[in-house]
Amino acid sequence: MFAIVRTGGKQYRVAAGDKIAVEKLAGEAGDTITLGDVLLAGEGDSIADATKVSVSAEIIAQAKSEKVVVFKKRRRHNYRRKAGHRQQMTLLRITDVGEGKKAPAKKAAAPKKEAAPKAETEAKAAPAKKAPAKKAAPKTAATKEPAAKKAPAKKAPAKKAAPKADETK
């Protein structure tokens, strides 16, 4: 089975066992990650529902790609600039492309009689905790406002040069 996944602004066609180099992803060597943005999936000529397919991969290494040299020059102006760049990348080994183990949507079950009183007591206790927080918020806002309204310091006026003595004596 193959899948087309999007990561790092690029799209990759992957199958189980493939090795790919993608833009840097969080994690260390040996970690397993799930590539969640599956655009298309299929096997042979048939196309499967991409929303039900998950792609899992193992991080082989965190590395840098080949160096790109940037050289700027303007002829006859003695202008030369040289810079280099090495993009961070992650090497992945695709371990599995297949039906995801997504949990079906759960329907809300009727609450038990024992659970209902607990929910009511928690609901009553929650607003009591929120009320003091609301009272404290205006105090902090009031203390911050005078600091924000403080006028910037004025600069001293520039001193004028002293008049020169007459040189025609």
Rank of each mutant, 00 (worst) to 15 (best):
A133L: 12
K19M: 02
I20H: 01
A123Q: 00
I20Y: 02
R75Y: 11
H85E: 07
K144E: 15
A108W: 09
G42H: 06
S54G: 09
A131L: 15
T121H: 10
A105F: 11
I47Q: 08
T32C: 03
L92Q: 02
A119M: 13
V70Y: 12
D37K: 08
K118M: 11
E167K: 15
A61G: 03
A156C: 01
A125H: 09
K112V: 05
A41V: 06
A131I: 14
K72I: 09
K159E: 11
K130F: 13
R80Q: 10
I94V: 09
A136I: 10
E99A: 09
A162V: 08
R76V: 04
P146V: 04
T32Q: 14
G98I: 06
E120P: 00
D166N: 14
N78E: 15
R75W: 07
A136K: 15
M1G: 06
K73G: 02
A116V: 15
A21C: 00
K124N: 01
H85L: 08
Q87L: 12
A151P: 09
E28I: 07
P132R: 07
R75A: 13
E114V: 08
K149A: 09
T140L: 07
A105M: 11
G30Q: 12
R81E: 15
P138Y: 10
E120I: 15
R75D: 13
A26S: 08
K10S: 10
A108L: 15
E167R: 13
A153N: 02
R13K: 13
E58H: 07
I47G: 00
K164Q: 13
V68G: 00
K159G: 06
K154C: 04
G36S: 13
A119D: 06
